[in-house]
Nucleic acid binder design. Structure first.
Length: 300
DNA sequence: TCACGTCAAGCAGAT
DNA sequence: ATCTGCTTGACGTGA
């Protein structure tokens, strides 16, 4: 089991997701931002190594406006060496990387132009991981998308659209159960039609679980959708409800008892877990201490 | 230096 | 009809 956190490290004063407004776009600004982000990404990964946090989600803002038509600059070539070096560091230290394009990436959209934009966005995400020379266990996670008044049809549209994506995208794409529309059952249905791995989100499943599937059962079902040789061990997202917060609000800090319970419920499974918790690496460090004591962290 | 309105992109559900 | 949340943060203008 690897433990990780998404995108931002609050301890070190360096962010790998610096961006700017479209209005203030210039090539100099663009290059400068990517440069900053790559420098910070290295520092964050170094921090993570020192704390044995071997799972990390790279921000979609690593290259701002990467899939936007305003950007004509060949950043892939310009930063090729930097990407390679970061990739070498990741591979050498047996780290794992994921990415999570944001809510505008919708492969089942009714509108073709939204699908086209989404393809470009997915292409950009694969480029990042390809430039780092990471194998296909480095994943890109998305939600199934919108319902558009007809879930059945929209699920079918996901399947059809998935089939026409580039192979380089297909190799990396995984779907995640969401908290409102497509729950684990829906994802499993899709998986019977196209062999796409399902990234299990523990918190979303608590909020949206039509099949009333228990934790261990859910881990078992999703684990089967990952081909270990091609995809690596399953990825899992974890959070818990913020006490006194609005419903669905991710907790500020880890609920260590809840996490302990999850470890017990999942003791027969191996997976990598991403803590979507606001205080980021702080909670991740608490989690890895607990998981280590529980004998769940083995040297990779 | 700081507050706060706003940010490329979409959807659903609440107000 | 408009606002809010989503993985939410941070840019950037005006004072």
């Amino acid at each position: 089991m690897r433990i990780g956190y998404p995108c931002i490290n609050r301890t070190i004063d360096c962010t790998a997701n610096r961006t700017f407004r479209l209005k203030s776009y210039s090539e100099a600004r663009f290059i400068d931002s990517i440069n900053n982000n790559l420098v910070c990404l290295r520092k964050i990964l170094q921090f993570n190594l020192e704390h044995k946090l071997l799972f990390f989600r790279v921000s979609s803002d690593l290259v701002p406006f990467a899939s936007h038509s305003i950007n004509k600059f060949n950043w892939q070539k310009y930063f090729q060496k930097d990407f390679e070096e970061i990739g070498e560091f990741i591979i050498k230290n047996r780290m794992r990387i994921s990415m999570h394009p944001d809510q505008f990436t919708l492969i089942n959209s009714i509108k073709d132009e939204i699908f086209e934009r989404s393809k470009n966005e997915l292409h950009y995400h694969t480029e990042i991981l390809d430039l780092m020379k990471l194998d296909t266990s480095a994943k890109i996670q998305i939600h199934v998308g919108g319902v558009y008044g007809d879930k059945e049809k929209s699920r079918e549209r996901f399947v059809t659209r998935f089939g026409v994506l580039d192979d380089s995208i297909i190799q990396r794409l995984v779907i995640e159960n969401d908290d409102k529309m497509y729950d684990l059952n829906d994802c499993l249905k899709i998986n019977t039609q196209i062999q796409i791995p399902i990234l299990f989100d523990v918190f979303h499943h608590k909020l949206n679980n039509s099949g009333n599937l228990k934790t261990a059962e859910s881990f078992q079902l999703t684990a089967k959708t990952w081909n270990e040789k091609r995809d690596g061990v399953p990825m899992v997202d974890y959070s818990s409800q913020e006490p006194n917060g609005s419903p669905r609000q991710h907790s500020e800090t880890i609920d260590i008892e809840d996490f302990d319970l999850l470890l017990k419920e999942t003791q027969h499974f191996d997976f990598d877990i991403m803590l979507e918790i606001k205080d980021k690496e702080k909670s991740a460090i608490k989690a890895i201490n607990l998981a280590t004591k529980a004998g769940r962290i083995h040297n990779l």
